[in-house]
């Protein structure tokens, strides 16, 4: 029923946002593609030379790439697995009649609001320090040898920190989904004599399938580019043990100033993220119609 005038107005109001996002998406991406075909190192002055796909060959066959791809996959996979495996029981627990539930909720959600540099440094120094950290003290009180987290299991240490940051997110989403589950359906199942386990497997879990998918996709987008936690704790080391793709590209761009190779790496990261994004956009889009 909208008049032509309001349609024109609507379009005018939408234009600035669309134009800005279009520029924001196209210009840097086009430049990245352009740079990725150049031999261009900021340390060599301003000499730029077209080298075709040479940078991609260099980046993709660099042993550092395979190592960092593996680290990225381990990091993303482990954090996803841990946040969901811990998030489901935690959400189920918080969905029970708990005295002081809103206070418990506040405690559980808190880590999500802590900036990455703070959580990484607090975990590294106060908790995981091999001599005076709290974990070392606990280990010693049980007569065990404290773990030197950042030397013996650096990637696992990063995984623990990132899991702590994202567990609240997974829990909160699963809890929100649980609370929208039809109570009557569960009660009916109980009346029919279903045991708690079968209620969980046949009613609760299928209901959680969608929120779990959403958690996986959204976390993946963010976890693919974990950066600050590595930057302030290990700097990618020891060796390449905690270098993920994001950190590898950063170090090629802003430590080695190799613009060409870093751009090629950037495009590889864009492709990986786009594969995930494709599925997420489809799921969200389906919801938009409903």
């Amino acid at each position: 029923m909208a008049t032509r005038q309001t349609q024109l107005l609507a379009r005018t109001l939408l234009t600035p946002a669309v134009a800005l996002l279009f520029v924001w998406m196209i210009v840097p991406l086009a430049l990245t593609i352009y740079f990725s075909t150049l031999h261009y190192n900021l340390l060599d002055g301003d000499t730029q030379q077209f080298v075709g796909l040479e940078n991609f060959r260099y980046f993709l066959t660099d042993p550092a790439f395979l190592a960092s791809l593996q680290n990225t996959l381990v990091l993303v996979g482990s954090v996803l697995g841990l946040t969901i495996l811990l998030g489901i029981p935690l959400a189920l627990l918080l969905d029970q009649p708990v005295i002081g539930r809103s206070f418990v909720r506040l405690m559980v959600i808190a880590p999500f609001f802590v900036m990455p540099t703070v959580s990484a440094l607090v975990w590294k120094n106060l908790l995981m320090h091999p001599v005076s950290g709290l974990f070392a003290w606990i280990a010693k009180s049980f007569g065990l040898t404290p773990i030197d987290w950042f030397n013996d299991a650096p990637l696992f240490a990063i995984i623990l920190i990132v899991t702590w940051q994202w567990l609240p997110f997974a829990t909160l989403i699963l809890l929100t989904a649980l609370q929208s589950l039809d109570e009557e359906q569960k009660e009916a199942a109980e009346m029919d004599g279903a045991r708690a386990l079968s209620t969980f497997v046949y009613i609760t879990l299928p209901h959680l399938a969608r929120p779990i998918t959403v958690v996986i996709l959204i976390e993946t987008i963010f976890l693919l580019t974990v950066f600050a936690e590595i930057f302030v704790t290990t700097g990618g080391g020891p060796g390449l043990q905690t270098t993920n793709i994001a950190f590898l590209i950063y170090s090629q761009a802003l430590i080695q100033y190799d613009i060409g190779s870093a751009s090629a790496g950037g495009l590889v990261a864009v492709v990986i993220a786009n594969i995930v994004a494709f599925f997420l956009v489809r799921i969200v889009g389906r919801n938009l119609e409903a």
Binding site: M25, V27, P28, L29, L31, T32, F35, I221, L224, T225, F227, I245, A246, I249, Y250, A253, L254, I259, A262, S263, G266, L267, A269, V270, I272, A273, N274, V276, A277, L280, V281
Partner: peptide
């Protein structure tokens, strides 16, 4: 929003 920031860090 899905574009990883590191993909456009250089430009």
């Amino acid at each position: 929003k899905m574009m990883p920031p590191v993909g456009v860090l250089v430009p």
